[in-house]
């Protein structure tokens, strides 16, 4: 579903992502783990066509990222952490509809999907109210609905739980697991091994733009004899500093 091939991004003299390759299958959650500045966001921005790779590419559902960015965009949904990214003066429905329209959905299709998502995420009560006064949890649901309204095959999450309290985090994590159930290919970036352990099937650890580990969580556990994985992570990214 996702095949990243030698993806590299240079910003002037900084190489933010250095020859990164990995694969994500249907119904698989891959954790992209790295410290601040490791290159997670840059990688995900390239996969979502916001940034052009300096070299390398990725194939999304067989479509080439560099040659067919428009078609790739139809296949992907993104939920990036930090600001939820909603228009406060629009209602929840209008927020979602705007992105549905811009993703090329027909009006009927958009409305159908929005009804379905409102039901699924339990937003019916406030879907026609302006987003400005929503709680963080409510906003998070709107952002989730927006990211998936066009039924993407691939979901990209960039530290989606950053700054969220326990219950809002749970909403996001449930959503990620639901995406997995629906057979989507998922990349989930985080700097916390704990979160990756809980959600992911596989982990790709990057450090200073390079992959330092790529494998199943169980394999990682076996390899390090049940050691605390957070410590393993620190050692893996620490090793490279010497």
């Amino acid at each position: 579903m996702i095949e990243v091939i030698g993806l590299t991004k240079k910003f002037k003299e900084v190489t933010a992502v250095d020859n990164v390759s990995f694969k994500v299958d249907k119904g698989e959650i891959v954790g992209l783990l790295g410290e601040n500045g490791a290159g997670k966001t840059t990688t995900l921005r390239m996969i979502s066509t916001m940034l052009k790779p300096t070299s390398g590419t990725a194939k999304i559902c067989g479509l080439d990222l560099v040659n067919e960015p428009d078609k790739v965009r139809k296949k992907i949904g993104i939920l990036f952490g930090g600001e939820v990214g909603l228009y406060d003066r629009l209602t929840a429905r209008e927020n979602i509809k705007y992105f549905a329209d811009l993703s090329g959905l027909s009006s009927e299709e958009a409305n159908r999907n929005i009804e379905f998502l409102a039901e699924m995420l339990d937003m019916k009560e406030y879907i026609d109210r302006r987003v400005g006064k929503f709680s963080r949890g409510m906003k998070q649901k709107v952002a989730i609905a927006r990211s998936i309204v066009h039924n993407p095959d691939v979901m990209l999450f960039d530290e989606p739980t950053i700054g969220l309290d326990v219950s809002s985090s749970a909403i996001v994590q449930d959503f990620i697991l639901d995406c997995k159930k629906k057979g989507r290919a998922i990349i989930f970036s985080s700097h916390s091994m704990r979160e990756v352990e809980r959600l992911c099937d596989r982990v790709v650890i990057i450090h200073k733009g390079r992959i330092v580990y790529d494998g199943k969580i169980e394999d990682l556990r076996r390899e390090y004899n049940g050691e605390d994985l957070e410590k393993v992570f620190l050692r893996l990214v620490g090793d490279k500093d010497e």
């Binding site: 979502s48 600001e83 909603l86």
Partner: peptide
């Protein structure tokens, strides 16, 4: 940019 709506916007068909 400040609202964080630019990124999702750039991944639409527009």
């Amino acid at each position: 940019k400040e609202r964080g709506t630019l990124e999702p916007l750039l991944t639409t068909q527009a």
